Amino acid sequence: MNRTLLSILKILSKENKIIGSKEISKKLKMHGINLSERTVRYHLKILDERGLTKVFGKEGRKITEKGRKELETASTVEKVGFIINKIESLSYLSDFDINSLKGRLILNITYIHESKIKKAFKVMENVFNSPYVMGHKVLILEKDTENILVPKDHICIGTICSVTLNAILLKAGIPIISKFGGVLEVRDGQPYKFGALISYDGTSLDPLEIFMRGKMTDVIGAIKNGFGRILASFREIPVVCLDKVKEIYKVMQKKGFKGILMFGDPNQPLLDIPVGIDRVGIIVVGGLNPIAALEENNIQTDTSAISVLYDYNELLDFNSAFEKFK
């Protein structure tokens, strides 16, 4: 399925009527493809032969059910790299300033049924008192806002996404590369090794969300016993920026943020993961660790990672939010 055929199927899938080659030719220009009507008809014939479109005489074509399934499959492949693009876009769009604590940072959004909310906060309390969160602030919504819809009988909880670190460093002129999301094994309270990794630029889904759904974590064990598995990511920064990043991280800690579990050495592997030339590896906690703890306790959640930009001033301290639902 080449780009032209895929674009024609996309155009047909959005129409509830039969359309001809002339109209398709015009719409293809929006996809950056310039084809004559005659060439469009040639491609339509290929789609007809594959059973992906149906001919309605001189009127034109409609997409078939088989065509919709083919489009769905092809679109999934096309989305590979979607997450890394989302990380880069939201990092750029965030205007959060760590010094003034003003602006929009990046949140993961989770919905929990209101009947489970008290138990959920009790479970998350342990995580928010551990090193395995980005910060103590959360968003709590019981009704719709302009940017977020809250399903009936549910509470929305927003946790600070680790991509906020990317945004903070980017505003300081420091490039950071998100390489992998994974499950990090903790021993004696210290990072030991990654048990599983997924490359951010090779997936259409957030890796940490995948591992959380697969119940591959033991966040509670890592907190209570010092032995467990948490969500974390592996990132790289230029060697020349290492001292500056450490300075910024000290500021973040003073402002109530956490996130970086470990810095590597220049040009040296970190937890057996190699780094690029003149780069340093860093291990960053996953912003979904509180939600992973809920899943471990069989509290069902509906989560969207790296979901939305939200004003920092609208967030609550976790302990204040907890008091509200006791």
Rank of each mutant, 00 (worst) to 15 (best):
K143W: 04
K86G: 03
E72W: 07
E49S: 10
S233P: 10
G32A: 11
D95S: 03
S199N: 06
G259V: 02
A232Q: 01
I223D: 00
P151D: 02
K122W: 03
V240I: 05
D95C: 08
G181V: 05
I19S: 08
K26A: 09
M30F: 12
V163D: 01
K326H: 11
F257Q: 04
Y92T: 12
L205G: 03
K29Q: 08
D265A: 09
V127T: 06
S100W: 03
H154P: 06
G276R: 14
V123C: 04
V280N: 03
S91M: 04
I112Y: 10
H136F: 13
K119N: 06
K152F: 06
R229V: 02
L35E: 11
I177Y: 12
G281M: 02
I24N: 12
V127I: 06
P290T: 11
D97F: 01
K215D: 05
G60N: 09
E185Y: 12
K258Y: 02
D311N: 12
E295K: 15
Y111A: 15
R229G: 11
M212V: 14
R38Q: 14
K66S: 07
L271M: 13
E314R: 14
E23F: 15
H43C: 09
S94Y: 01
S178A: 08
F121Q: 01
I11P: 12
G195Y: 08
M1Q: 12
S307L: 09
K102L: 01
S13V: 09
A172M: 13
K171L: 07
L271W: 05
N16H: 07
S320P: 00
V284D: 00
Y310Q: 11
Y312D: 01
H136C: 06
E65L: 08
K244E: 10
M134A: 05
G181Y: 07
K179S: 02
